[in-house]
């Protein structure tokens, strides 16, 4: 039996497998603890079977400035129902008991990490089974988290955007690991969608600067869009569409309906089915 791959190696293995299968992967985003820890844990557990190749687990934050209304609301639901950084790591720990191959990327904002303590958080996250981080408000210029993450053998994933021009791209990709997350629109999550032709051009430009796999996100919400963009990228990321499914399956008092987890997972299945 081979040793379990963790951190950057688990991410690399997943992308190698996807390449061997000749298809793009689905990076599925959900907010940890949305709408409550129990439902969210149930969704998390079943995401790989439903077709998620990579999991982006959102760390709820009170002021998600780069997110649109859908993710913002999901963050608030989670916080209102007792989500916390410690509980997010607990969710990962429990997930790892049943899955050692699906990479988990924690995605969020820096303040909760900073307040937890960067070194301690990275150590606790590594121990829980986290493989990488996307911290939206830590551009390469604010690099205080990168080194602890690298030293722990995990990936610090950088975002490239349509405004990241050729002059700036080397700065962004220089220390990137895991994959590059290409934000395909100038805007917040869950709003407009980019034209495939623009994405193609942008990816060609990115590939001149980096050999890392590219995950394309922002504005992808249907199986058709996923299939189309999946022809050009190693993975596509979907988030707002899934958290919207959570929002659509709540009782009037904000608690989850019985249908909540399945509604999210059905959409994961539908979108992943296009990635062949």
């Amino acid at each position: 039996m081979s040793a379990e791959l963790i951190g950057s190696a688990r991410i690399a293995k997943r992308f190698a497998d996807l390449k061997a299968e000749g298809r793009a992967g689905l990076a599925a985003f959900i907010t940890a603890g949305d709408p409550d820890i129990k439902t969210s844990s149930a969704i998390l557990k079943q995401l790989p079977d439903a077709g998620a190749d990579i999991i982006e687990l959102g760390m709820p934050f009170s002021d998600p400035m780069a997110d649109g209304p859908a993710v913002q609301a999901s963050s608030q639901r989670a916080l209102d129902n007792g989500a916390s950084m410690i509980k997010t790591l607990d969710m990962v720990r429990i997930f790892r008991q049943g899955d050692s191959v699906t990479p988990i990327i924690l995605m969020g904002y820096f303040n909760p990490v900073y307040v937890y303590g960067v070194e301690k958080f990275v150590a606790d996250a590594a121990e829980a089974g986290v493989d990488g981080f996307i911290i939206v408000d830590l551009p390469p210029e604010e690099s205080e988290m990168r080194e602890p993450v690298e030293n722990a053998g995990l990936s610090f994933i950088y975002l490239a955007t349509p405004t990241t021009d050729d002059e700036r791209l080397p700065t962004v990709v220089e220390h990137a690991s895991g994959f590059i997350y290409y934000v395909s629109v100038t805007g917040v999550t869950g709003t407009s969608s980019a034209a495939t032709a623009d994405i193609e051009t942008a990816l060609a430009r990115l590939r001149r600067h980096s050999d890392l796999p590219i995950t394309v996100g922002f504005g992808i919400r249907t199986a058709e869009q996923a299939a189309e963009i999946g022809k050009h990228a190693e993975a596509i990321a979907v988030g707002s569409a899934f958290v919207n499914k959570v929002a659509e399956n709540l009782n009037e008092d904000g608690t989850a309906k019985d249908s909540c987890a399945d509604a999210v997972l059905d959409l994961v299945r539908e979108i992943s089915s296009g990635l062949t």
Partner: peptide, 20 residues
């Protein structure tokens, strides 16, 4: 030059805004 007053300040923004 990176906008720090002691440990305070800095440029904690999303990449989309960084070039601007």
């Amino acid at each position: 030059e990176d906008g720090h007053f002691g440990i305070f300040g800095g440029r904690y923004v999303a990449e989309t805004l960084m070039p601007l």
